[in-house]
Design a protein around this nucleic acid. Structure first.
Lengths: 189, 189
DNA sequence: CGTGATGGCTAACGCTATTAGCCAACAGGA
DNA sequence: TCCTGTTGGCTAATAGCGTTAGCCATCACG
């Protein structure tokens, strides 16, 4: 655990506790009981810290998604179609809501692609390809999941929204056919 | 056109030209050929300006969506099902990409609900309810559209992505049944 | 002609990231 | 034992941010 890693770890603590607004060089330094300028002996600046956190978030999210699919794939009953989509979405939602500030940091603004570990991005998105079998549907499903999480995190759904049902409606839509287990209307047209 | 409105208008010019980062009180003031502190004679602060811009963005987006649906509904051929969904998504995408910085400002972070014109939010989202017929599917479709736009704006889709196809795949998914016109695979399961 | 409102201005404060430069502690070799 | 380089703190300072306080010119109106 190099000192630079400790800085990133401290930054994560501050971020998860105080949000993106509270993530200042002073706060990170205080977490380590030092002063802000001393941080520059270990990291290149705030942006560099954030990029480390983005890589970390991407990695952990990818792991959560892979784990979720592996669990259903390995267990006794191997679900297919809608269930796999629902499983993936549930894992995505659960993980994002468990680390809201880290998720926001990782998905806000342009991605510093060439400064990230190569292959990480593809690996993290792999599960979407797995459950859809088609790259375009995978991207669409990912966009749906991301949109839902962001809107939920920002509290932009009207009060009283039954988000479980909404998530389920999306899962059904992306499963390839409308086949609900008494949850939402078959089709509203 | 009160002076306060001119400030907001200037802020919009700065935002659309220089992005969220460039939207500073100094820049807005410079746009009006005055100094930053003078702005406080007309508006309550930066946050107040941003809220005005959010309301404006919400209003314009809502108008674009309503117009798009009205156009298809009124014209000779009145499309149904997938076409209406596709029409709505196309309008959403076109409008968001035409005003990227305004869109980002309006959708980033928590919504200042009680500081917005009442009913505006519901009205802007109405078209999604119109084309889906179900509130949960409407929310899901909205989340999908928002996710796609955000990811596209941030350039987070891998280079070479065929986004038109991806958008189309989502439209098909949310139309209630998979019914593609030779665009994507029927279902990948 | 006075008086209040309007709408500019400068100076200042506290916050941010960041840089420069100083110095104590410590490790390894002569 | 000293000398020297590295590590990792520190303070002081800069530039830019939003914001407040207080001063002053302009102008409409009674």
């Amino acid at each position: 655990m190099t000192r630079a890693d400790e800085v990133v770890a401290a930054a994560r603590v501050v971020l998860e506790r105080d949000g993106a607004e509270g993530l200042t060089m002073q706060a990170v330094a205080a977490e380590l009981h030092i002063k802000a300028p001393s941080l520059y002996k270990h990291v290149d600046g705030k942006r560099a810290i954030e990029i480390e956190l983005v890589a970390l978030a991407l990695s952990e999210m990818g792991q959560a998604l892979h784990d979720a699919l592996a669990a259903t794939g390995a267990g006794g009953a191997g679900p297919r179609g809608r269930d796999r989509v629902a499983t993936l979405l549930a894992a995505y939602r659960r993980h994002a809501l468990a680390h809201p500030n880290l998720y926001r940091l990782a998905t806000a603004g342009p991605l510093p692609r060439h400064q990230l570990p190569p292959g990480l991005e593809d690996w993290a998105g792999e599960p979407f390809l797995t459950v859809t079998g088609d790259p375009h549907r995978a991207q669409a499903l990912w966009a749906y999941a991301h949109g839902m999480v962001v809107l939920e995190l920002d509290g932009r759904f009207p009060a009283g929204s039954e988000l479980d049902v909404t998530w389920s409606a999306g899962a059904s839509a992306f499963a390839g056919r409308v086949d609900l287990a008494g949850v939402a209307h078959p089709h509203g047209d």
